[in-house]
Amino acid sequence: MLKKLLRYDLKFLFRYWWIAAVASLPASVMGGFAIKLLNSEFPTTGAILVAVLMILATILTIVAVAVMPTIMIAIRFYKNLYSDEGYLTFTLPVSRANLLNSKIISSFIIEMASVLTVAINVLLMAIIAGANFSEIFQGYVFRVGDGILALAFVLLFSLLVVSSTLLMFVCISVGAVITKKHKVLAAIGIYYGVTGFVSGFSQLFVSLSSGLIVGIVLSMKEDVRTLVGSLMALPIILIIAAVVVGLYTLVHWIMDRKLNLS
């Protein structure tokens, strides 16, 4: 049943996004030529104006590719579960866990597709604009721990994507159960309240601990610095993993025990 749920969730999420994703590729080619034009010797005023407009159009397209998934994920989650559609979704012969898992997996897939598309676009622009990659990576020496650092980064990034999606699900779910008339407004208010609190708290934590961490890392020999630095990501990964488990449990509990469709 999870596969079937996924199929319908993905179909909804990719419905409009793929158009923006496909459109972004020629836009990036155009943006690359525009950058090249600006870098050329003695460009005319008209050429500069056209190039700037082309770059703006490219940036807008890439921003659309990056932002659309979040909007589509929120719409899908709210409509499919907490609007009238919920009467059908929650009476399917499917467990609440599978309903939630499908939403999380499909959200992760489109977010990753979005990251990949943005990366391809940036690379495309850089190639066309004439970026010298051998110069960028010149002198780079592979160090012990680079692989672990990359792995830690991928894991951390994936967990952050899942946790931010789950945070959105929590806000929508809480908004849907605490009010009957202004569910969306309540969800937005809760989201900004929670993210404001979390960002304030994390800024405080970073400002208090960053000096100490940087001091420790800089005092080490260069060849072990990357390895130790990547290992220090472990507690952060564990904290975010715990947050993911907590948020998942909360959404599942609301869907299972507190559901009250109007």
Partner: peptide, 20 residues
């Protein structure tokens, strides 16, 4: 529960379809 939903056919008092 979810298992008995396969035995129950439910018609709510409002349209519950995704209009798209």
């Amino acid at each position: 529960g979810a298992d008995t939903n396969s035995l129950v056919s439910y018609l709510p008092e409002r349209p519950y379809f995704d209009s798209w």
